[in-house]
Design a protein around this nucleic acid. Structure first.
Lengths: 222, 222, 222, 222
DNA sequence: CATGAATGAGCATTCATTCAT
DNA sequence: GATGAATGAATGCTCATTCAT
């Protein structure tokens, strides 16, 4: 009735299927992707996919895990070597930009799956996002503790400005086919944010100017 | 067999269908919404929907148009009365937050449909988003021209930081069922961004010294 | 893309689908029946079936309802006219045999769905079976009250003996392609059961013999 | 890559597989059981099962054979020691009830597979059922020959009343989670059937009068 | 002898859209 | 203008069985 063809290559097949799934999910979004198309591109039959993954969803989650595992490992290395808060910020922003630039479709997939209609909190993806977000959170908390950042900085708000802003910006630029260099943009973003975030040391001229401004506003709020 | 129901005038029917579609799209997302359910809630039959709208997609687009038309009209009024750049920023940010707070599902729908896999650029939704974004763009350009904002401020980047940041933040807060007050959050965001964006006339040491003197006199006029 | 063929005949279509479903369920059992085959025999497409019935299961339940409704209505007429307990028993047994003879496959379907792995209690089928069983239950209870049946007759056990016995017997006979006449068999069954069930009037010789036997057993249980 | 597991001797493996199959068939029914699950519980791989059994169906048949072989052997022992027809009936009925009480799921499996849609007559299961049924048939035939049972007793009908009735009753009681004691119920069933089945030598008025006299003397030997 | 990867037909169900009435 | 029955392809997923290793 049939001729079971190749044989014996579990890990290879698995990777072929993951690669095919990645392609299809990115092209069509998770909802619109069909297992049939994934199978076709992986060069196997639908049933085969289900011997490697329990469901279409698990296929997606495996993709996320692989992606974040690699990413987090990579960042950990670079991050450990940097101490200065501004430098850390620049590094994390540039790194995040780089991801979004290198693989914008994947970034879009992450966003749309987070915002999706399945419960996000408690999901695999949520856990991974959390872990990844810790780099920035830690940077901000450390910065506050060391006195490099304002004591009243709202860490969660700052984080959202960074991640949300980057996502929005990269998407806008790429959709318009404008060029985007991660390090340059990172520099611009840090520039745009830093003075609002930094603590106002007496020696810091810009900080001083801000303090004056704030006093003026309080006294004479025209 | 049954007497035809009292004929409704076209525009009423149309609005009923739109209202039903809005409900269903928000509850289920565009993909997961079914025309059958929309018809059921609109109190008509599937075929009827197709006499008013060419497709399910057109239904969605009509929703967007209505939403943005109302929104833009509303903002225009408030915006016209404000001149100061910082105040304008605060107003636009608070307004944008308010939308996201009032109707988070609709916001999510907009985001997921923009980032979706149908071509966005050139779409109805894109055009509407553009028009809406002009308020902020104009504010920033005016601010630069008037010398209130740094001459080298990258307007597009600044805009993306604001819109992306807000979207990300509101989603995060609401998903965790945290309270969110538009005006407070707007103040916090402006605070976080302003000093990095403002023109640095303020940096001038001599001017600063004078302003400090003035303040000292006011507070402690010995 | 298509040519929607006939038109406007809801009740006809419904009956066609039910008839086809009946055929297929009887031939293959519920589990093994496929909606595709039902559609094919009904001369429509799978989707059409779902505009008339919410699920394959609902199709089955509709069949049961129609069957029992007709049956109960029919029995009610005949039953009301009979008063004597023995005659009632004979009537109900003959009627039940007739069903099993006329439509053995349907009877088998009922049995296998009752004993099936879906929860039976609380199901549509259970309710229908209950209603139907009440004729026999009532007959037995009335018989006891009137003194025609032993006061200690276990009604539920007696009912199970009748229904279970008939089901088993008909199935056995038909499977061996033996002829089966409902009224004859009913007479034989009543004969086989009656003396064990009837009350022992003093004038009833057989009853007397039984009482003696019971006493003998009690006194000298060799 | 991995050392082959310690090879088990054929019969052990076979029994492990059968035990696993029994579990799964009872939990899920034959149709709904999957070979994969049987393999998992047997601690082997799907392919292995097919080296011991030609198909899923053969697995089921093997189960039946084992079950009936043991059962028939067991009954033969007890049955041989009983001569009295009423006592034999009681024994066989109680034994049958005990099976249904001890292992209702297995009984249900037998019933649903007999009534199933594969041809039953000529099947393995049919042959086993026949052999098992012979105990009752023999009891009835012997009873008639010895004059303990009516000469016109329809043996096949009587057998069906017993087996069908028991099956129906046990299922009803267990499904309602009512308690059921095999010997008590057996007594009740024999009571319900016996007088209709017994020979009517007892009807003879003269003999009856004598027996009554004898009883009277015993009870009240004035 | 045992493995386990691969098969591929099969499943119930959904749904945007059409079009004769 | 409105209807609503019909479509039919598509969906994710299951599973008994095979056979190269």
């Amino acid at each position: 009735m049939s001729a079971t063809l190749p044989r014996r290559r579990k890990p290879v097949r698995r990777d072929e299927i993951l690669a095919a799934a990645r392609e299809v999910f990115l092209e069509r979004s998770f909802e619109n992707a069909s297992v049939a198309e994934i199978a076709a591109r992986a060069g196997c039959v639908e049933g085969t996919i289900y011997t490697y993954f329990r469901s279409k969803r698990e296929l997606l989650d495996s993709l996320f895990v692989t992606f974040y595992d690699r990413l987090i490992e990579d960042i950990e290395a670079g991050f450990a070597a940097i101490v200065d808060t501004r430098a850390r910020l620049h590094y994390l922003i540039a790194r995040h930009l780089q991801i979004a630039i290198d693989d914008p479709a994947f970034t879009r997939l992450i966003v749309s799956e987070s915002r999706g209609h399945q419960p996000y909190f408690g999901s695999q993806l949520h856990a991974l996002n959390q872990r990844y977000g810790q780099f920035l959170i830690r940077t901000l908390r450390d910065g506050i503790q060391r006195g490099e950042l304002r004591g009243d900085l709202e860490v969660a708000l700052a984080r959202d400005l960074v991640f949300g802003g980057i996502e929005h910006h990269v998407w806008n630029r790429l959709a318009r086919r404008r060029q985007l260099v991660a390090t340059h943009t990172a520099t611009a973003i840090v520039e745009l944010l830093w003075s609002g975030w930094a603590a106002q040391g007496a020696d810091d001229l810009r900080g001083l100017a801000q303090r004056v401004q704030r006093l003026e506003r309080r006294i004479d709020p025209r």
